[in-house]
Amino acid sequence: MKPIRVLLADDQQLLRTGFKMVLGTEADLNIVGEAADGVEAVEMSRRLLPDVVLMDVRMPRQDGVAATREIVAQKLPVRVLILTTFDLDDYVVGALRAGASGFLAKDVPAEELVAAIRTVAAGDAVVAPRILRRLLDRFADLLPDPNASPPTRISTLTDREREVLVQVAKGLSNAEIAQALMVSETTVKTHVGHMLTKLGLRDRVQAVVLAYETGLVRPGSP
């Protein structure tokens, strides 16, 4: 298998060095570059096309949220994994809305960092829906007015797909959704796949964010 190509984006050289030491011991991971700010992160993502960018939030010239948004807008085949402080940056929700595939605390254990990179490179997200929901509840004031008209693309979903979207946003796994809807887990996976495709979303993380934005799920709802 081809090694996973990783770009490090952090304004602190010491942290980049630490990440390199950890990731350099993994045979399937290859550090292809280092960026010291968001502008460099975007430029190097465009030039190097890494599989995953480990993106710090607070950087000079351009922060990680803006850099993530630009990478996604350019439709680069690059996935972004946001790095944040232990107490959660207020920018995290914005980063996820911008198209990040998830986030990690900077003090995450090495084995979790490595596993997260592999997960993101494989096309999945690394934020558990329940954790993301708590984040969105906490930062609900950063989201658009839930009473606003929902995007027209939501109307493309079938009733069942919309129901699955709500269950995903509530933090249920495929197995739990299957039990709640009294269908097979395979059926749920099919509905989730169709829902993501119709909405133009990369993963379940973006589905949860969209469910909040459209008011399908409200902060603090059961």
Score class of each variant (00 low, 15 high):
V65H: 04
A66G: 11
I117K: 01
V188W: 03
R130E: 11
D89M: 02
H194C: 03
A148R: 14
D63Q: 07
L132Q: 02
T84M: 01
L48Q: 08
F139K: 03
G64L: 01
S101I: 02
V108A: 14
N30M: 09
I177G: 13
G38A: 08
A121Q: 04
V78I: 09
E185G: 14
D11P: 03
A67G: 13
Q13K: 05
Q74P: 07
E43G: 08
A180G: 10
E34F: 01
D90K: 06
F19T: 14
L216Y: 10
E163V: 08
M21Y: 09
P109S: 11
L7D: 01
A148T: 08
P222A: 13
D10P: 04
Q13I: 06
D203C: 05
A169M: 14
M195E: 08
E185R: 15
V166T: 07
R153W: 13
P3S: 03
V183P: 06
L7K: 00
H194K: 14
D89W: 00
D37T: 04
A100H: 04
A67C: 08
D141L: 04
L181H: 07
L165W: 07
V65R: 01
A9G: 06
T17R: 08
L210C: 02
K2I: 07
P129V: 08
V57F: 00
A207M: 14
L196T: 14
A95S: 10
V32K: 09
G18A: 15
E185M: 07
V126C: 15
A95D: 09
T25C: 03
